[in-house]
């Protein structure tokens, strides 16, 4: 395969990736220009800040459409944590990122901090599977605490797990970064809180739906701007969350590959570009 096919090309618009200040699990690609928008990618169960989205990072950093966009790949303990704790960390990050550049840029790069002193005009949360639940809880808190910045936030969701999931399938699909995963499905036993919280009867899911229903219909941040689902989805239910638009399906994708843009499925990147306009 060629350099281009493998995406090995010089990305001149962003800096090389670095951890978020004080958060080694998360990774940021800072725009070299003063950014107008922030995109935060939130992975799912047993995912990883960067791994889940491969190769979203290099497509985005090689594209003019993301020239003035900071890209954060948010990481959290997706093995043994729980939804409420994870959403709390995401909420804290968003609150801090809006308050000032310290949450995004190391003190070692003062010029880049200065470039971000005016804040972001738009924030897009891009979430996969469990990450969608984590995001919506974080935004629900922003609504309940009447944070002004919530009005600038939109959600793009891939295979969201709001309507529950098959517990065994979500656990085994989480290992699909290993190409030989089909061999091991029999070995997987889901005994961790995050997986239990994705049961269709989970209180975490029903309470979230109930609270969103009770919120004002004007709280647009609580509704996904766009929802993308996989053609061969066997892990989560594709039933839309109350208030969300009907989903767009991507051909030849499954629960894991739906959020990984490829030469065939670049559509997902296009949806994100649209939301940044």
């Amino acid at each position: 395969m060629s350099l281009t096919e493998l995406g090995i090309q010089y990305a001149s618009l962003h800096l090389d990736p670095s951890p978020l200040p004080g958060d080694e699990r998360s990774c940021v690609f800072l725009s070299k220009r003063p950014p107008t928008a922030l995109v935060v990618f939130v992975h799912g169960f047993r995912g990883d800040a960067l791994e889940t989205w491969q190769p979203f990072d290099r497509i985005a950093t090689g594209s003019e459409a993301f020239r003035e966009v900071d890209l954060v790949f948010f990481g959290y303990d997706a093995h043994y944590s729980n939804v409420m704790a994870s959403s709390s960390f995401l909420y804290d990050f968003l609150k801090d990122a809006v308050a000032g550049p310290e949450a995004i840029v190391s003190a070692l790069l003062p010029k880049l901090r200065a470039d971000r002193s005016k804040g972001y005009k738009r924030i897009v949360l891009v979430a996969h599977s469990l990450g969608a639940v984590v995001c919506r809880w974080a935004l629900l808190r922003a609504v309940e605490e009447k944070k002004e910045w919530r009005e600038n936030v939109k959600m793009l969701l891939f295979a969201p797990a709001h309507s529950g999931s098959d517990l065994g399938a979500v656990a085994s699909a989480a290992f699909s970064n290993v190409p030989w995963v089909p061999l091991f499905v029999e070995a997987v036993k889901a005994k961790v809180p995050l997986v239990k919280e994705l049961d269709p009867e989970s209180r975490i899911l029903t309470e979230l739906a109930e609270r969103v229903r009770r919120a004002s219909p004007n709280e647009l941040c609580l509704r996904a701007h766009r929802v993308i689902v996989a053609e061969r989805e066997i892990v989560v239910s594709n039933l839309p969350f109350p208030g969300d638009p009907c989903p767009d399906a991507l051909r030849d994708t499954d629960h894991v590959s739906v959020c990984k843009p490829s030469s065939r499925v670049h559509k997902a990147v296009g949806f994100l570009q649209e939301m940044l306009k």
Binding site: L3, I8, Q9, Y10, A11, D16, P17, R58
Partner: peptide
């Protein structure tokens, strides 16, 4: 060349996926 720079940037990303 920018191809060489792209190769280096690829390594930065690749290694960050595996190093921890």
């Amino acid at each position: 060349s920018e191809d060489a720079w792209g190769g280096f940037q690829w390594l930065v990303r690749f290694s960050s996926r595996f190093e921890r």
